[in-house]
Computed example of a mutant assay.
Amino acid sequence: MTDPQSPLPLERARALPARYYAGDAMLAMEQASVFHRSWQLVAHQGQLAEPGDHVVEEVGGVPVLLVRGQDGVLRAFPNVCRHRAGPLALCNGKGARALHCRYHGWTYTLEGQLRSAPEMQGAADFDVGDIRLPPLRVHAWQGLVFVALHDDVPPFDEVYAGIAERIAPIDLAAMRFHRRDRYDIACNWKVYVDNFLEGYHLPHVHPGLSKVLDYRAYDTVLFPWHSLQHSPLRDSGDLYGEGDAFYYFVYPNIMLNIMPGRLQTNRILPLGPGRCRVEFDYYYAQDDAALARTANDQAFSDEVQAEDIAICEAVQKGLASGFYEAGRLCPKRESGVWHFHNLLRAAYGDA
């Protein structure tokens, strides 16, 4: 029998077996081998514009704090006090002068240096100058902010290589945040990613979306750490305008849906073996044409998302049925799924 962790050529490939979509042990392994060892989208730069602005997030189960220092530098730390693991912040905020542990009041500078520790005078050989928050890797790109928990992640510029150049003249950095939608879905996080990565289901699941995308010209291009699904837009003037649709997936859980004058980012966050949360952030160019389309865009996106939720939850039930064996992939339409599964296989092998 072929080892399911050994990648096969696309023409012979099968999907991942059902057991990879279930179980607490599987998810724990993925948190460590996939989410802890990849660049994770955590904020947009508008949230961190001035010194003391900070964002509280979570990456692979690890609480994370991003903060703009007094020196203007953007930094990230575990949101964990060095005393007894209390939180340094409980929510996003603006203009903080220092980081105060909410448990026992230890205070750090915005640069992570411990400044004061109440009532610790009796502790032998204790010096606040010896204690700093461990820095995490942080990177800003096209107005978005990313964090990596470990040093052994691929270089950021390799992961996102070529995206800004491919979508030109669309300028993502010039777009402004508009709103966030959240959906909690009864499926494994990979089911949602798999679904995003192929247009094979478009004619069967998304009748409305199929009218504005050219299925015959719909193609997928693979890169080392991301994939692109591309289609010309048709008859979508009131919805997206004229141009092209770029659907980027960046391993392991980030999606960039780019249309003329509009960016939608998706973060896929596991909530358990059979549950995930999808966060949609919408950004728009600040011209009249793009802003005029926001209402239609929201209604249409809600329709497409409802269709995706229904099919993903049905697939999760199928995977859990005991009657599914890993099926063959369609070489013409499912190369993005094959690419994602191979990246996962490599991470599982390393683990």
Rank of each mutant, 00 (worst) to 15 (best):
V153R: 01
L144Y: 00
D157L: 01
A140N: 06
D125E: 13
R115Q: 15
D157C: 01
G112D: 05
R137H: 12
A161E: 11
A140R: 12
F126S: 06
V153G: 01
D157R: 00
R137P: 01
R132M: 08
H104M: 04
V145T: 03
F126Q: 05
M120G: 10
E111Q: 15
A140I: 04
A117M: 04
E111T: 15
P155V: 02
G105F: 05
T109V: 11
P154L: 08
D151L: 14
F156H: 01
G105I: 06
F126E: 13
V128C: 15
H150P: 03
R137Q: 15
G129N: 11
S116N: 11
I131V: 14
E111C: 15
H104D: 08
P135R: 13
A140Q: 15
G122S: 11
P154D: 08
T109N: 14
T107L: 06
W106L: 03
R102D: 12
Q113I: 06
A140C: 09
G122K: 10
Y160Q: 02
L110E: 09
A161W: 01
L110C: 12
A148K: 14
S116C: 14
H139D: 06
G143F: 00
A161C: 07
V153T: 07
M120F: 13
D157I: 00
R137W: 07
C101D: 09
W106C: 05
G122Q: 12
C101Y: 06
T109Y: 11
T107W: 08
Y103T: 04
Q121T: 15
V138F: 02
T107N: 12
R115H: 11
H104V: 07
